[in-house]
Design a protein around this nucleic acid. Structure first.
Lengths: 337, 337
DNA sequence: CTGTTAGCGCATTCAG
DNA sequence: CTGAATGCGCTAACAG
């Protein structure tokens, strides 16, 4: 219905050949200013719009990127998506949004869909969990950029582009900050055990503790769901079992907000009785009370960089195709001073 | 590169015709179980994936929906997007995400892109501002569903499907709530003057005031930017100019959070000295201190309903194609009790 | 149940 | 500078 009028209609109306029309539509050389002008006019008049579908069939390029996120309603991923959309638009690409709804199986299915849709490349944002089948599905795509997610093996990672946050340094920074403020009993509500980021942050935490010659107690590291509810529950348990702890690191800001709530319940005032540190710096972090001291991860920037990396690769810009490791930044607010 | 192997390769390898392969790929009738099985096997073996592009060229359907939002990083729109993605996936559609970056001009350009990509339909979520050129661009699409946005004229609205929130009732509900709690001097930080929702909410506010025989003072209605900063600034000015006001309605939760901050600065404690009410019930609303009393708008549900409406229409299900008006719901928390 | 013919709308050859 | 042929990969409409 929509694309009723074709390039042929335009050609006929303008009294030229298909190719001439095609050339002016695509701004190609080899057309006199005169005919170019004429054809443009006819195009406007007829309201012609080229069919991206037909074009893609012959060029074998769709100008579309696939973006897979675990949950677009999560500010973490919507921030990434915002960055992705910005660069994609600027470079003339569209983005097919795939929400896996936190379901690893769904990711596989989505990868299939993207294959049928013939996207030029895919951006895969941090699935929480490692599905073993993921690799073969990924391999079917021309090019994939991983956002804040890595496989366990470097060999596998070598097949993909990636932009990640250095969570090990992140974990180290926040731990060092607490140590610097005189804390030496520091706990960690470490999030999902399956999370790559969690592991890295714990590494950083341990490194900082070791560096300061502080004893590392495994029971001070408590996994939890990466949500407010998860953080609240974990903090409740943790604070009861380890009242001696004066500094509490959290997997992310949501967990930290949960910890804030638990502290209130238990009667430990933050930051006086207990310092709490988040991670990510989602918009909410600055707005809770007390405002969260946290580690800023540049979501939107990651989205932008990943998209640029992907597009550079599609354009065969070999030089520009370097993977990117971002260093997070400490943001001191009120929950730990 | 990706779709190197075609239906022809499968046909040859299986020793059947193209059509037979096509039939099994599309699960169509008219193939014996035996050959169906054989062909399926060859497909797996060769790793064949059908080309959506080629298919779309002939079927004139892309199985793709366009979604335009002003800002995907805004929880309001990422909530909608989540609902959209859910239904789209469930019904076998993909969604092309377009982030207009709060730029009405960009919207037009995006609409063009969607036209070239030949999306089956488009979902347009609440642009803040009315661009006069919007209508002709929308008209080029087969079917459009407006999400929480309406044109000023009913004739124009008649051309589109829509799912909206009844913001007039919303404004009325929150005003009645404050009145019921004994407030009779109620201000309204009403957001952008260009916003359709703002106008409606103000209508509701006035209706409730009138109904309670309270005097409506125009100076108690103050427009502002729909952001935390905008709310903070507006509240600062408002509270200084109208200290007599004891209840403050806000355009949305972000504005309310700003008002909360301003109150703290000015030394008015919430809810004792001043009741503050938000709008939308974004995730953040429950997490600030004091937690926001607000009016819940069912974002995700709106996304779901709009998408279903669009798909129903594409499937020519005339009966099911009714526009939807949702009624918001009061959520009482701590900022106004 | 299976195969053949034709063409979707366009861009890439190659000739003028 | 312009145009005529050819085919991208697939399905609809017919034949057998």
């Amino acid at each position: 219905m929509s694309s009723r009028i074709t390039i042929a209609d335009v050609a006929q109306a303008a009294g030229v050949s298909l190719m001439t029309v095609s050339r002016v539509v695509n701004n190609k050389e080899g057309v006199s200013e005169e005919t170019r002008h004429l054809v443009s006019q006819v195009i406007d008049q007829l309201g012609y719009s080229p069919s991206g579908i037909a074009r893609s069939l012959v060029t074998r390029r769709t100008g579309t990127l696939g973006l897979i996120v675990p949950d677009i309603a999560n500010p973490y991923f919507s921030g990434i998506a915002h960055g992705v959309a910005e660069i994609a638009y600027a470079q003339g690409f569209s983005v097919l949004l795939c929400d896996a709804e936190e379901n690893p199986q769904r990711e596989l299915s989505l990868l299939r869909v993207l294959e049928e849709k013939q996207v030029d490349g895919v951006l895969l944002a941090a699935p929480r969990q490692n599905t073993p089948d993921l690799l073969p599905f990924l391999a079917r795509h021309t090019y994939v950029v991983l956002i804040n997610r890595l496989f366990d093996s470097d060999i596998e990672n070598g097949s993909f582009g990636y932009v990640i946050n250095n969570d090990e340094i992140g974990g180290e920074i926040i731990t060092q900050f607490l140590i610097g403020r005189g804390h030496n009993q520091i706990g960690f509500l470490s999030g999902p055990t399956t999370s790559y980021g969690s592991k890295q942050r714990v590494h950083g935490y341990k490194a900082a503790m070791r560096e300061a010659s502080l004893h590392i107690r495994p029971q001070w590291i408590l996994p939890c769901h990466p949500t407010v509810a998860g953080g609240k529950e974990a903090a409740r348990i943790f604070l009861q079992q380890h009242p001696e702890v004066t500094g509490l690191l959290c997997f992310n800001d949501m967990v930290a907000i949960g910890a804030l709530q638990a502290s209130l319940e238990v009667g430990r005032s933050v930051p006086q009785d207990l310092a709490i540190v988040g991670y990510d710096d989602i918009p909410m972090a600055a707005l809770v009370t007390p405002a969260l001291t946290t580690c800023r991860v540049a979501f939107e920037e990651m989205g932008r960089l990943a998209t640029q990396l992907l597009i550079d690769h599609l354009n065969n810009c070999e030089e520009a195709c370097n993977n990117i490791i971002l260093t997070p930044e400490l943001v001191i607010r009120a929950s730990a001073v």
